[in-house]
Nucleic acid binder design. Structure first.
Lengths: 292, 292
DNA sequence: TCATATCTCTGACTTTAGTCAGAGACTTCC
DNA sequence: GGAAGTCTCTGACTAAAGTCAGAGATATGA
């Protein structure tokens, strides 16, 4: 049995049993679409725009769904003070109650399903689902080249810097004369962000070191995404970008504290070299790889 | 994060990504319902009755779906020769082709999804999904008391005997003077079958040994269902039945070849005892447990 | 053999889900 | 300040999915 068979077999048994979890949104007297929407609005509210994107709905259809929920007194729709074209949706107290009820139904259905399992089996299931979840998410992560000043890039870089600050014994302060933005974009550089469910989970960039050499900079993978091969995938993508920009060789420098990264560079074919032109005081270990 | 959370989290990410596998039944120019039906008919055909039950459809609705597929030349519906009220559905050659296409779409979608994973990750995913599949199926196995002459019971017993015959060095022949049927039913006995997706996956019975003692007989778990705690669950159910029938003690005899079973009896609280009244030449090891 | 039950089918619905074209209010960018 | 773009909403649709009440044919068990 191949993996594809396993996946399909699992899919069948899963959707028949647990998949019904989400259908338990039914039986609340509301059509499934309305319940899903209510759930997606959530206790913190959401912008109509985002709902449309997340649920992939037609704008007219969404408007109608929302106005039905509003008629039922479950949500409130009002203009976004920051941008008069947009509208924000929040749950009313009744809506909050309905939201909680959806969650409880879903929970109790899940509990009932797991009830026949022993403690040991539950632990095994927990681990298996956790692993499968991570890998499936990892497989569907979307890598794309973005400008380093976009929101996605800024968020990712922010988390990267914050982590360096936590992990370096002396903390980390981004170089003030940081030419990051300009160097990590065309025509001599690129910046790649990996996103899952809209949130950035990894990033990295290439910039010009000399005419034939691109330098990989600011590679970061979110902590709970490590061990899923995302780093290697991102690195290969950056090498592709570097090749496209005309570089024949990739180099990078890193800090010896970042042990996972060091091991990964080795696996992907990087070879340790002496220090090249350096501008970051944090780089201690250096690698290169031919792109030809 | 509790297991329920893991399940729900997994459910969300899974249905969004892989769940779409089944939706790939769309895009074949046929509505989802019709494709699902075509898939459920399958290459071997099916009875309309069973389709209605498996897909949980209204009879009128199903009739209409089927006649649409028949109009498109994909299926053929004709009376069941064995029962004039029923009708049987089979795929026409065109229907077979459409069926194969559905499968290919689903496969290639699954492959595309897994493509970014490395070999090692795929192996991990394969194992994780396999484990989760087994446990989820095990959790949703349905145990019920049936008469030992019903089809389900006969099938299960048949597989049990066949396995003993394979595993015992000298083979196994059911005792000819087998009073099985009569002894494993009320008022002094019971027979329990565990079924998953309609197929029996485990069985076992209790019969009277003396007024206060019930004997557990013919416990069997299908080979690919072992390690999922099904045996222990079945045994506990049989003890419940024995208690209900008024027994204060359960005993059982087994063969020392069946090592998994021996270990399981110990885990569930059975204690080895000397041979009690024996009528099976295959029983070598004996256990008892108080039911009070 | 007659009442009762089972199985499929038909007709007449309703609800849910979704699409499309454009109007109107507002922002943004030159 | 005006053109171009964004966001939401309305109206007018269509298709899919599902429900309900019976009719008619056949089987089953007393």
């Amino acid at each position: 049995m191949t993996l594809v068979d396993t996946v399909r077999r699992f899919n069948r048994s899963y959707t028949q049993r647990i998949g019904a979890l989400e259908e338990s949104f039914l039986g609340t007297g509301r059509p499934l679409g309305a319940s899903r929407l209510l759930f997606e609005v959530g206790p913190d509210g959401a912008a109509v725009r985002d709902l449309r994107e997340r649920l992939d709905l037609d704008s007219g259809y969404l408007t109608r769904l929302l106005s039905r929920l509003a008629d039922d007194g479950l949500v409130e729709v009002r203009p976004d003070p920051a941008d008069g074209r947009r509208r924000l949706v929040t749950l009313t107290p009744d809506g909050q109650a309905a939201y909680r009820e959806l969650n409880e139904r879903s929970d109790s259905k899940a509990r009932g399903l797991l009830e026949p399992l022993t403690e040991r089996q539950r632990a095994r299931l927990d681990e298996a689902l956790g692993t499968a979840d991570l890998l499936i998410r990892a497989a569907t992560v979307h890598l794309r080249v973005v400008d380093p000043v976009t929101d996605a890039a800024r968020t990712a870089l922010g988390e990267y810097y914050a982590e360096l600050d936590r992990r370096f014994p002396s903390g980390f302060v981004p170089e003030p004369r940081d030419d990051g933005a300009a160097a990590l974009r065309a025509p001599s550089g690129a910046f790649v962000v990996a996103a899952s469910d809209g949130a950035p989970v990894a990033c990295g960039g290439v910039r010009r070191l000399d005419d034939s050499t691109g330098e990989i900079k600011r590679m970061w993978v979110a902590p709970d995404w490590r061990g899923a091969g995302l780093g290697a995938r991102l690195l290969r993508r950056l090498e592709d970008e570097a090749r496209r920009l005309g570089y024949a060789r990739a180099v990078l420098g890193t800090n010896s504290v970042l042990t996972e990264a060091l091991a990964m560079y080795g696996r992907v074919g990087y070879r340790e070299i002496g220090p090249y032109l350096v501008d970051s005081p944090y780089d201690e270990v250096f690698f290169e790889k031919s792109l030809i």
